[in-house]
Amino acid sequence: MPHNALYTDLSCYYDLMCADIDYKTQSDSAHRMHQIFGNGGKRHLDLACGTGPHIQYFCATNYDCSGLDINQPMLDIAQERCPQAQFSQGNMCAFHYENRFDLITCFLYSIHYSGVLKELAGCIESAHGALEKGGVFFFNVVDRRQINNDLFIQHSINHEDSCFTFRSAWHYVGNGEKQTLNLSINKVSNDSQQTWEDKHPMVALDFDELQDMLSPYFEVHIFEHDYGKIIPWQKQSGNAIFVCVKV
């Protein structure tokens, strides 16, 4: 299928694919980091917001929420889920808002959808420009040096008389700034079976490179990839949460 079919033609399956994600704990983690490091404001923007489940939790915490995504079918679902929020179709690597935000989030490793380092730099610059002083840019990221191409995540769920199996895995060739996120959907209904596969281009970089890109714009804090705890990154794991404060 085309590399973005999951987010357009197959967008109705996206929430099923993410059924095992603890959106509340992730959202609470960003809120807590904003309370600790941020300016305390309540204007929130979620980049690559998808169908809006994170925004749903921020709205419940009295944030004034906006969402940005490049795929309109995802935004249509998000607007129905969160009618009180504002949604815009656009590129997270080149965006501008008239009003600034206090917290910008980008969950589910979506920062990697920048594709290449030049575009990622545009995302960082756009986020910096869209934040108030003391605002926080919160996202999670994977270090290319520790990607294991043999690892994957998979889960199955029953829905409308069909069984869906979703699988995702990183793949990095070992050099360069490009990797792929390999996604597959297998749908079994009675005696029929359908399979869709998606190899989405993603930017690959290490944490040292990322810190160098962020440091001209932000005060950078790195934490272990544990949304339930606040643990400074121990420079061992290949997944981390970045909390970047506009100074």
Rank of each mutant, 00 (worst) to 15 (best):
T51N: 05
E132M: 12
N182W: 04
D64N: 07
C93S: 14
K178R: 15
H54S: 15
H159N: 09
P73R: 00
H112I: 07
Y227A: 04
E209S: 10
L108A: 08
G50T: 02
G238E: 02
V188A: 13
L151Q: 10
D226R: 08
L10V: 03
Y63F: 14
M202E: 11
Q56W: 10
P83K: 08
D46T: 02
K42Q: 01
G90T: 07
L45E: 03
R81Q: 04
F138Q: 01
F101T: 01
T8Q: 12
Q194P: 02
H159Q: 12
A30K: 00
G134K: 05
V247M: 00
K133R: 13
C59G: 06
F152T: 02
E125Q: 10
Q194Y: 11
D9T: 15
G115V: 08
N158P: 01
Q146H: 13
R43C: 05
S27V: 06
K246N: 08
Q211C: 15
L16W: 09
S156R: 06
G38S: 02
I185G: 00
S66I: 01
L10E: 10
A240G: 15
T51H: 03
R43Q: 09
A204D: 04
V142R: 02
A130Y: 04
C93L: 05
F139C: 02
C49L: 03
S156G: 11
Q154K: 11
S114I: 11
A204H: 06
K42L: 04
E160N: 12
T180K: 09
A127N: 07
A78T: 07
D226F: 09
Q56C: 13
H221C: 06
S162D: 10
C65S: 14
E80Q: 15
M213D: 01
M1D: 13
L131H: 04
F139M: 07
Q79K: 12
H34V: 10
S110M: 04
T61Y: 14
G115Y: 04
A48L: 14
V220P: 04
W196N: 07
N62W: 03
Q56A: 15
L45K: 05
C82D: 13
R81V: 03
V141P: 04
N99P: 07
G174N: 06
Y172E: 05
E209C: 13
F138P: 00
K24G: 08
E219H: 06
